[in-house]
Amino acid sequence: MAAAGANISKPGSGIYAGSGVALMLPSWLIIGLFLLIPVLLMLVYSFLTKEFRGGVIWEFSLDAYDQFFFYRGLFGDEPPVLEWTYIGIFWRSIWQAGAATIFCLIIGFPTAWFIATRSGANKSVWLFLITIPYWVNLLIRTISMKFLIRDTGPLNEWLMWIGVISEPIHMINTNFAVQLGLFYSYLPFMVLPIYASVERYNFALSEAAADLYASRWETLRLIILPAVKPGVIAGCILVFVPSLGAFLAPDLLGGAKTFMIGSLIEEQFKGNAGNWPFGAAASMILLSMVLVALGYYARQQNREA
């Protein structure tokens, strides 16, 4: 493109932009020390041999990946067949995380819209209310949720008291409970980026659309959604990725039937029963899946721009 006559001055290109290297240095240091090095460690561990009481033996091995994908019989001497257990756990995790993302989006979008369209002082109050639960530790919140929804918990008792149900609804250890936990844990990560997008949205665009005969639905679909799309996508990523690796909600609220990747990995590093290389391998598989998805999204974005 770059046709002649386009009068665009890029903000941030002047002398006030500063030197890129110096500005990036602190974050590169932190990312390097606390992200890249641990990830590399995991990568290395995933190719080592397991020590039976936790830890690793420094000897190259593909056992961890082999165990993830293939079953070789009880004694490991049969011909390999595809192992579905872990792939199944991954699939269930993706499904759970996807569902949680959709629920967060359905509730989070109108919430963010509502907050962003309040007047100045009210806006801060609503944002504050959204963040209040996050002042309490996630573990404590998840345990509270467990107490709230168990068979003899306040929710069931209240429902029976007002006469909606005669017997407690069994909620704990179901997919519903996991969804509730994930939704409750990650809703603000959906609300806040969408809020930021809506706040920047120029409402004159909605007026212009209505002026040009667009219905409310068409305005939402054709004008508002494209404008707030970056916030929606950021919110979806921020909910989906941690939901995928979550272990608190599935562990405490879900039980054995709703076992997810996060719990699988956590177990490998806990106590004496663990298998570090296997946990590391599962982590690497999860990480590469997320990276592939994000890379695909980034490429789509570049193509559109």
């Binding site: 120029n202 004159a204 665009l205 007026e207 212009a208 659309a209 209505a210 002026d211 005969y213 004008i223």
Partner: peptide
């Protein structure tokens, strides 16, 4: 507004970006 046969030129244009 979408049922009125009038159209508007907005102050800051409000073009769809």
């Amino acid at each position: 507004p979408n049922q009125r046969p009038v159209n508007t030129v907005f102050q800051q244009y409000a073009l769809f970006p």
